[in-house]
Amino acid sequence: MNECGELLKKLGSLSAVTGRENRASEKIAELFRPYCDEVKIDHFFNVIGIKKGQSENPGSVLVTAHYDEIGLIVTEIEDSGFLRFSAAGGVDPKAIGAMEVIVHGKKDLFGVIGTKPPHLIPPEDVGKAVKMDDMRIDIGYDGKKAKELVSIGDMVSFVSPPQELLNNRIAGKSMDNRSGVAALVEILKELNKLRHDDDVYVVATVQEELGLIGAFSVTYNIKADLGIVIDVCHGDMPDAPSDETFPLGKGVAVAVGPVLDRRHTKAIIKLAKEEKIPYQIDPETGDTGTEAAVHEVAREGIPVILLSIPSKYMHTAVEMVCVDDVIATGRLAARYIAGRVKE
């Protein structure tokens, strides 16, 4: 795999369940450091890479991509040693039966989400989905040991390390939105080859999966003239509506819609054409469900562009993206930042 692919694999191996990103923030900071003038971690664990512009009177561009991932949270440790849990972020109970997990207790503990063997399922329950409240994590310990090592509120991440597939594709957990973080690093690398007037703040944000939380503090603390949000959009799947999904490998999806700044969006599409960077148009009629909705109304309002990387099977442990799309996203954003004319 190319450099970007290897980076994405590294990012996909980190665990940063939403709300408890502190365990991964320093590792993200390390990835930014070689390309930035300064890297900071704020008190919510947003990781902020700052690259100064060459202008004497620079504007500021804020690029955000969240690095938290969906997971589970322990809600009860039963006397038997089984763990009850609920979702941290949007988790579909149908997609987690028989998953391998890591329980981040006093130490990392391997566990499995046990499911009932088909032999023992009563005929009336065959084909029925199991509710999350009826599932348990089995860490192999008895109750006493489990209560010693695990506490209510401990996070659980899925074990699904990134795997290379044909056609430059990678599948695994947390491609939503580590592929966006990989694009942030691509932007930084690209900017090191270009002249850019504006100060650029590249931020890996927290708690997006809980309601865009990290973006609130970041868009307040950094006064930006332009916001760029990088996240995933739905990849094409056989049983999904074609107007809401985008093929993998066909380039970055540039969002068009009421939340997105019209002038910047038009300009970045024009640039993609000129530079022959593969792109697709992503019509977003609503608030986009991304951090762009926060940028739009932060402080006096930040004009915002949304760039998305198509990802199949979103919010499962086998999310799939194409590395070429990540590179296209990084290149397009970097070129746009570098070519920005101050108004």
């Binding site: 939403t18 709300g19 408890r20 949270i73 809600t75 009860e76 009850r84 941290a88 409240d133 209510i152 509120g153 708690q207 809980l210 309601g211």
Partner: peptide
């Protein structure tokens, strides 16, 4: 619904609700 909090068990220190972690 299952929840590991009971009356008389002491004040509850919040880990998470729908609005905050």
């Amino acid at each position: 619904n299952p929840m590991a909090v009971k009356l008389g068990g002491g004040p509850a220190i919040k880990i998470k609700d729908r609005s905050v972690i």
